[in-house]
Amino acid sequence: MAQEREGFEDDRPLATEAEAKALASAVRLRILRLCLDQALTNKEIALRIGANPATVLHHVRKLVDTGFLAPQEERIGARGAREIPYLATRKSWALRLDEEFWSDMSTAMMDAFNTEVAQLSDPAKVNIARLGLRLDKAQYAEAQQRFQGVFQEILTWEPGPEAEPYSLFLAIHPDIDRN
């Protein structure tokens, strides 16, 4: 989720305080990721992230209340219990954050990324690169716009018949050690 930064114009609507706070949690970001392709119940989500179902339910309710998760048609579980599966709405891509909430969101994104990468059985499956740059304000703004464009373009790709799930994480930050 690219945000409005120096010289970068973003015409998406500003997230409300409740929406911004809902996204400022690594657990909630992971729940949204899990529910992108298929609707999952609270119990299924809890099993996948290794968390207590009651804790997960708190996070699911916050995501539903803010429109980031949508409840799907109720179904009957294996033991006859009513279950409600939830599907991510992709609303987070339609919003931008106010500067006040940017730090919390950045931390949540990095925590979610670190947790997900740590769960991989083969670290070589992470395609990662790091690059040091010197950019003026115009170049920085152009980089932000291009990053946003690439994300928006990739978001429109239709998965092929043998498509597998991947996550994409991109960050650019001031390199204060190189002044």
Score class of each variant (00 low, 15 high):
E4D: 06
E4H: 01
F8M: 01
F8S: 00
F8V: 00
E9T: 04
D10G: 05
R12F: 10
R12M: 11
R12G: 02
E17C: 13
E17N: 09
E19Y: 04
E19R: 03
S25K: 02
S25L: 04
A26E: 07
A26I: 01
A26L: 05
R28S: 01
R28G: 01
L29V: 01
L29C: 04
L29N: 02
I31A: 09
I31T: 00
I31R: 00
L32K: 00
R33T: 14
C35M: 05
L36C: 03
A39D: 09
L40V: 00
T41I: 06
E44N: 07
E44R: 02
I45S: 04
A46S: 13
L47F: 06
R48D: 02
I49P: 00
A51P: 06
A54K: 14
L57R: 06
R61V: 12
R61S: 13
L63M: 03
D65V: 00
T66N: 13
G67C: 03
F68S: 00
L69G: 01
Q72T: 06
E74P: 07
E74V: 06
R75C: 03
I76L: 04
G77H: 11
A78I: 06
R82K: 13
E83H: 03
P85Y: 02
Y86K: 01
L87M: 14
A88T: 05
T89H: 05
T89K: 08
R90W: 12
K91F: 04
W93A: 15
W93S: 09
A94V: 08
A94K: 09
L95F: 05
L95R: 01
R96Q: 15
R96T: 04
E99D: 15
E100M: 10
E100R: 15
F101N: 08
F101V: 05
F101T: 05
S103R: 03
S106D: 14
S106G: 13
M109A: 10
D111K: 08
F113E: 04
F113R: 03
E116W: 13
E116K: 09
A118Q: 03
P123W: 01
A124C: 10
V126Q: 07
N127H: 12
I128Y: 14
I128V: 13
R130D: 11
R130A: 13
R134I: 02
R134T: 05
K137D: 03
Y140E: 02
A141H: 00
E142N: 09
E142M: 12
A143C: 10
Q144I: 00
Q144H: 10
Q144M: 11
Q144P: 01
Q145M: 11
R146A: 13
R146C: 09
Q148F: 08
E153D: 08
P159R: 02
A163R: 09
A163S: 13
S167M: 12
L168Y: 15
F169R: 02
D175N: 08
I176P: 01
I176K: 02
I176L: 06
R178H: 15
N179R: 14
